[in-house]
Every structure is written in C-alpha cells, then in structure tokens.
C-alpha cells in the first residue's frame, strides 16, 4: 500500500528496543558507540535521547569486559542488550560468550537464567577485507546454549528483536550490514518493508516461506534470502518455479519447514555467506538427507563462501560471494535445464 510506513532494519531494531525499554525497566543497552552515535550501524539511534546515560551506555573497547558484565547483570535480574560491533571481533571475547553466557544456565541446573541479547553485525560485499566482513553463522550456531537469529527484512527485524528481549535465554542477534539500510553500505531495497507501529513478536525458531514454488527449494538467511528471491525471479522467466525459505533463526532451526519444502520440490540449494565447510550449509543438507533422501530428485547443492579469508580487492571478493546468478546456474543444473550459451 502506498502510505504504509516502511522502515529500515536499523530503525526497526531501535524501535523494538525502545518499545521494550518503555515497558520493561530491566532492559538496558551497552556497547561501543551505541549511545552518542546511535550505533555505527544505526540500530540504537534515538535510545540515548529517550532513556538517558544510565540505560544506554557507551563502553570502553573491552568486549570481554562488557559482554562478561552483561552475563553478570543478566544473572542478577537485568536484561542487557549488548553490541559486538562486528562479529569478526568475537575472537577477543569468545570466552564470555560461549563459556559464560551460553553455559551458565546449564551449569546452574537452570537456577541462573541469562536473558540477554548480543547484537552483532555480519557480512561483506563492500571491500572491508577479512577482519570486518565475515558472517560466522556456523561458529555461533554450532555451540549449545544460545539462540541465534538473523532477519532479512525490517518486519522480521522488529519482531525478532522483541521476541529476543522477552526470551529468558541468551540470543545472538546477527544483522547483515548490507541490509541495514545505511546508505554508505549500499541498500538492499527488499529489506525495507512495512513495519507496524505496535509491538509484536516474530517467533524465534520459525522459518518463513519468502516465496512459494514447485521445482526447487532455496534455503538461506539474511542477505542470502535476497539473492534467492532475485534468482527466483530470473528462474521464473525460464520456467523454473523456485521456493525461497528464509530461516530467520539458526538456533532453534526450523527443520520441519525445510523438510516440508524439499518434500514438495525434491531439489535443494543452500545459500550461505558463511564459509563452505563445517557450517550452516552442511547442516541444512544433513537435515534433509537424514530424514527424506527419497524425496530428493537430485543431489543437493550449496552456494557458500569458499574456505578462504575474505579478500579486499573488489573483483576477488565478488567472485567469492554468493549471488543470484550462481543460484540460477545451480537451479538450472538441478532441474535438468540446459545451461544457456
């Protein structure tokens, strides 16, 4: 509709956080450059002005310190929202994440809860090279004790953030830089969608069918969903009907939706901007092959980031990234269509 309100993912995240802060005094936000600046990627803009310095805190550049502090505050009854500016920075603070945040519920037999949201930016495509461009979905989703979500559009971004803030568990909220709607990072128009004013939740652990189709299932998350949708448009012109599954959550993983889609189409392509080996793409394929090999009309394919550090040079990085053309080629191959000359 013409006059429907559309938001970027960045604004949708900030709105969800603000709405929850209004009704839940235990929610507070801390991280690097999240207060005065409103977040390098815009997702905490306006919070300092409304809620003040006590609840919206710029931290020192001390990820181990403030993520560890978030764990302690969460165990003490608060609901911290912390930001790890780039997911690539997890190397300096992973103990606080996977040994404390993700395990203290288990170690306490469920007597300490750790309700916190760790927001972190992912993704490349803008020549930021190998320490500021990774997705690392698999690294987080592999380790038990934390939920992992990543929205592909602003509607889901708001609903997943609200759900994360109401979840009694730690939630890793991964937002793709290419989808944030920050002009200087490029803008994916498909991510800017209608977002209702009122608060709502998108269930964590529930995938969405972003586009229905009959011939091939394209499974992805975040930016990869948009590659899949563009590929589906092109495939439709060639007479191939592609279904696009937007996972939205990696933990818990909605295996039922994946399996049901592949049962219908008989063909599977996984699009993953994270590294090829030992990651999300392998897990999705195993999800299908472990349960319904008989449904598959062809061996599954994956379009993932090759197992190399992310290069700086634009042509090299673009060569490595998933894109719609790669998906189209894979789908044509799977569907037995001749490759056009």
């Amino acid at each position: 509709m013409e006059n429907e309100r559309k938001l970027t993912i960045a604004r949708a995240m900030a709105e969800a956080t603000a709405q929850e802060m209004r009704i839940d005094p235990s929610v507070f936000v801390m991280g690097e450059d999240i207060a005065e600046l409103g977040g390098v990627f815009g997702n905490t803009r306006g919070l300092l002005e409304e809620f003040g310095k006590e609840r919206v805190r710029d931290t020192p550049i001390s990820e181990t310190g403030f993520i560890g502090a978030a764990v302690g505050a969460a165990q003490d009854g608060m609901k911290p929202v912390v930001e790890l500016m780039f997911v690539d920075f997890f190397g300096v603070c992973f103990d606080a994440i996977y040994n404390l945040m993700a395990k203290n519920t288990y170690f306490s037999g469920g007597k300490f809860n750790v309700p916190m949201v760790l927001m972190t930016s992912t993704g490349g495509g803008y020549s930021d090279a190998g320490q500021h461009s990774q997705c690392l979905y698999g690294s987080f989703a592999h380790l038990p004790g934390m939920k992992v979500v990543s929205p592909s559009n602003a509607y889901d971004a708001k609903g997943l953030m609200t759900a994360a803030l109401r979840d009694p568990n730690p939630v890793i909220y991964m937002y793709h830089k290419g989808l944030q709607g920050m002009g200087w990072l490029g803008t994916e128009a498909g991510a800017i969608v209608h977002v209702p004013e009122e608060s709502y939740e998108v269930e964590i652990g529930k995938a969405a069918i972003a586009r229905e189709g009959r011939d091939v299932t394209i499974v992805s998350i975040a930016q990869g969903v948009h590659h899949g949708l563009k590929a589906a448009d092109k495939l439709a012109e060639q007479g191939i009907s592609a279904e696009v599954v937007d996972l939205r959550s990696l933990v818990p993983l909605d295996r039922d939706t994946i399996r049901a889609s592949v049962a219908k189409t008989g063909r599977l392509i996984v699009v993953d901007e994270d590294y090829h080996s030992y990651g999300v793409s392998g897990e999705i394929i195993a999800t299908v092959t472990e349960s319904n090999m008989a449904d598959l009309k062809a061996a599954p394919k994956r379009i993932a980031y090759p197992d190399v550090p992310i290069p700086f040079a634009r042509v090299m990085e673009q060569h490595c990234l998933p894109n719609a053309d790669k998906i189209v080629a894979a789908a044509r191959d799977l569907c037995g269509a001749p490759v056009p000359a």
Binding site: E54, G68, A69, V71, G72, D76, L100
Partner: peptide, 17 residues
C-alpha cells in the same frame, strides 16, 4: 579471570537498579 566480567555486571546491575 573470567569471573571478573560477570562480577562487574552484577555490580552494575545493583548500581542501575
């Protein structure tokens, strides 16, 4: 040393609340 971050956070929780 990894108990230190959570202790700081618990202290922060008391301070904020």
């Amino acid at each position: 040393a990894q108990g230190m971050g959570p202790a700081a956070g618990a202290a922060l929780s008391r301070q904020i609340q």
